[in-house]
């Protein structure tokens, strides 16, 4: 439709993928560990594979870190869902405000239909109990933008529930 709005690739070149693994593997594993504890290595691997699969379609080299964090967040959700569908609870206790796996499950169901970025914002705020500065760091934006994202996500959630 509107071709001028499309980003023409070739202007910004993507870094070689393994550079991302070297730069962010460490913090992605740490983050995955907070989400799924003992399965962190599997989830982080799955996240990097998903990222690698869609990497050629990424149009800009900016915000790759935030992009990785979104992917690992989704991979962790999928992983927990799969586990609970098989009648098992997540291994160990999650290091989150919502300690009860059942509550965590309900929370995930509740936000499941929202956009990935809305899910990430809600999860970082209400499950991980992070402040807006930290949420901003995680999502690769300012704390003001992080606050906006959380409130937009809350509004979207509220709209769905009424």
């Amino acid at each position: 439709m509107n071709h001028s709005a499309r980003v023409v690739s070739g202007t910004t070149s993507l870094p070689p993928f393994w550079r991302l693994v070297e730069l962010h593997g460490d913090e992605i594993l740490t983050y995955a560990r907070r989400l799924v504890r003992d399965d962190a290595e599997d989830v982080a691997q799955e996240a990097f594979l998903r990222a690698l699969r869609s990497y050629p379609r990424v149009t800009s080299g900016d915000h790759l870190r935030a992009w990785l964090f979104r992917i690992v967040t989704t991979a962790a959700f999928d992983h927990s869902h799969k586990r609970s569908r098989h009648g098992r609870m997540p291994a160990g206790e999650t290091q989150t405000v919502v300690d009860d796996p059942f509550e965590l499950e309900r929370f995930n169901d509740l936000i499941g239909g929202l956009s990935v970025s809305a899910q990430a914002a809600l999860r970082l705020r209400f499950i991980d109990d992070l402040g807006y500065d930290d949420i901003g760091k995680r999502l690769g934006c300012t704390s003001v933008a992080a606050r906006q994202r959380v409130s937009t996500a809350v509004r979207a959630l509220r709209k769905r529930l009424t």
Binding site: S13, L14, P15, P16, F17, W18, R19, V21, L52, Y55, P56
Partner: peptide, 17 residues
């Protein structure tokens, strides 16, 4: 870094060690 960047640019970004 320069060598890998050149590879990524011309042969594709999915460069794996």
């Amino acid at each position: 870094d320069e060598v890998l960047q050149e590879i990524a640019q011309h042969l594709g970004p999915r460069v794996v060690r």
